[in-house]
Computed example of a mutant assay.
Amino acid sequence: MSTTTDNTTDTLTDHRIDMAAMAAVFAAVGEHLDVFTDLPAPVLVTSYHPAVTGACPVTFQLTSGHHPAVLAAQLLAWADTLNWVSCEAWRHEDEDAHTMHLYVRGGLTDGTPVQVFASTQYAPSLGLDLGQRDRVDLAQLYAWAAARTEVTP
């Protein structure tokens, strides 16, 4: 831990990272991707130590811009490989108000929490205000994936 000249703790270096714990997270991700080789490939994988951020240790970002039906099918492929799955939508609040992020959250077989997301066109049937987040039933994702057409209620 480092300190500043006024003897206050430097918050950037105050966290002691358990490298063995991080290695275990990486191993769990690697094992998951080895077992489920047909998952839609992420364009970005981000990992944070939960003691630092309090967030999911691993985030998989899929390619954005797909039609909601395509993204729903991709997220469902991931959801089928996770434990205790939930889904959420978040509508952008700025000039991208016509888009939303869809998230699937769950756990790998060893319990490592993960989230998988991408952005897509906003589905008015969700009724989200600008900047609003809300839970989405997996049944809704299945309906969108099956439709492969306009996303409507």
Rank of each mutant, 00 (worst) to 15 (best):
T59Q: 14
C56G: 14
A41D: 12
Q74M: 07
T37V: 12
T59S: 15
L76E: 02
G30P: 03
V52D: 11
V45W: 00
F60Q: 13
A79C: 06
F36P: 00
A51Y: 06
A41M: 05
I17L: 12
V35G: 06
F36Q: 03
P50R: 11
V43G: 13
F26E: 12
A27W: 00
M22G: 01
C56Q: 15
L44M: 06
F60N: 12
F36W: 08
Q74K: 01
F60W: 12
V29H: 01
H66Y: 11
F26Q: 08
A23M: 02
T59F: 14
G65T: 13
D38I: 01
V29A: 04
P57A: 15
T63C: 04
F36L: 00
C56K: 15
C56N: 15
A69V: 05
V29L: 04
F26L: 08
V29S: 02
H49W: 08
H32I: 10
T13C: 10
A72S: 15
A79T: 05
A55T: 13
A41V: 10
L39S: 01
A20H: 06
M19F: 04
T11L: 14
P57G: 14
T46K: 07
R16P: 01
H15M: 02
P50C: 03
A55H: 15
C56T: 15
Q61F: 06
T46I: 03
D14T: 07
A24R: 13
T63R: 14
L39I: 02
A24W: 01
S64L: 07
A72E: 09
L33A: 08
P42L: 05
H49A: 13
H66V: 10
A55N: 15
A77F: 01
T59W: 13
Q61G: 10
H32A: 04
P68T: 11
I17D: 02
V35Q: 07
D34E: 12
T13S: 14
H49D: 14
T13P: 03
M22C: 08
T53W: 12
Y48D: 13
V45E: 12
F26A: 06
A20K: 12
D80A: 13
V29D: 01
L75V: 06
V58R: 07
A77V: 02
G30R: 09
L76I: 05
A28L: 04
I17S: 02
V58C: 15
F36C: 00
P40R: 03
V58Y: 09
L62Y: 07
A73Q: 08
W78E: 01
Q61H: 12
V58E: 09
S47L: 09
V70T: 14
T37H: 05
L44A: 11
G30M: 00
A21R: 13
H15F: 11
D80M: 02
Q61W: 11
T63W: 08
T37L: 03
P50V: 11
H67K: 07
L33K: 09
L71M: 03
E31Y: 03
G30V: 00
A77P: 04
A28W: 06
A79E: 09
L71Q: 02
C56F: 15
A79V: 07
P68S: 11
R16T: 14
L71C: 04
A73S: 14
S64D: 15
P40A: 04
A79R: 03
L33I: 06
G30H: 03
A24M: 06
A77G: 10
A79D: 07
T63N: 09
G65P: 14
T11R: 10
R16S: 08
A79N: 05
D80P: 04
